[in-house]
């Protein structure tokens, strides 16, 4: 009988989306899944894993260890380990960029800036203050207010020759400002481009972005224009790993693999 190789799973229950990543013992991604987090984190952790397992063509009994992360990490009842999303993002990014980097993660409600050393060690980190300006929630709110589809925003911004400046810090005030522009007939593409620029400005003022900068999170995964804009702001090319939205789940899976060999 052929022995089946073990699999390791990372589950990242974020404020907006739940992610599952399955890797093998070599750290290669076998499958991944993304679902809306909703309100029942225990249920979504089960369903997102089931989807990833189905995609992998595999069964639950091959899973050797699971690490949960994200705001809902305590709700993942089948997790063997729990770690914060700071650690998991650091781990996931270092997997692709084994060098000193500054990680800029723009998530649904949180932005994180994590400074990593050459061995992937966390030197320090910053999270956004108690304000969702500059996060995915900000973009979602703008899309909702303007009755636009989220998936159309990046294309609209890229196609626009104009760009407006969004002056407000606050999401609610920004919405008011944008609705005022729309009322005055400002081209919508320029407004959306300004919204993305605002996101980049908010994240740039959180901490010093030095050395090589790598972006992760759902916002850059779906809106590559923010990578370009951050690169323009910093005057250098910004790295983005494969699958930037599931990098925290990947890090969690890598930790599951390490801890199941050498539990701490």
């Amino acid at each position: 009988m052929v022995e089946m190789k073990p699999l390791f799973v990372g589950i990242d229950i974020g404020s907006t989306t739940a992610k599952a990543v399955i890797i093998d013992a070599e750290g290669v991604i076998i499958a991944q899944a993304i679902q809306r987090s909703g309100y029942d984190f225990a249920a979504v952790s089960e369903s997102v894993l089931a989807e990833a397992l189905e995609s992998a063509g595999s069964k639950r009994d091959r899973v050797a260890a699971v690490t949960s992360t994200g705001y809902g990490r305590r709700n993942v009842e089948f997790a063997d380990f729990q770690r914060t999303e700071i650690l998991c993002h650091a781990k996931g990014v270092h997997h692709y960029f084994p060098e000193p980097v500054t990680v800029v993660d723009i998530g649904g409600q949180d932005n994180k800036i994590i400074h990593l050393g050459a061995q992937g060690e966390r030197l320090n980190f910053t999270m956004n203050r108690k304000c969702a300006a500059g996060t995915g929630a900000f973009i979602e709110e703008i899309a909702y207010r303007l009755d636009l589809k989220l998936e159309d925003l990046n294309g609209m911004a890229e196609a626009s020759a104009t760009e407006v400046a969004i002056g407000s810090f606050c999401t609610v005030f920004s919405c008011t400002e944008i609705l005022g522009m729309a009322r005055r007939g400002t081209p919508i593409g320029g407004i959306i481009k300004g919204v993305f620029r605002s996101v980049v400005k908010r994240v740039s003022e959180m901490d010093a972005l030095d050395g090589k900068v790598v972006m992760t999170g759902g916002v850059v995964a779906h809106n590559p224009i923010v990578r370009v804009m951050l690169g323009e702001a910093l005057g250098c090319e910004v790295g983005v790993p494969p699958h930037p939205q599931v990098i925290g789940a990947l890090g969690a899976a890598l930790i599951a693999g390490e801890l199941s060999v050498d539990p701490v």
Partner: peptide, 25 residues
């Protein structure tokens, strides 16, 4: 980010994540 008395200024989940991540660090 928090406050001495006004808990409207305190995001408990975010604070816990920051503290736990700091200890992990």
């Amino acid at each position: 980010d928090g406050d001495l008395n006004d808990l409207r200024c305190y995001s408990e989940e975010q604070a816990i994540t920051k503290i736990e991540a700091f200890i992990e660090q």
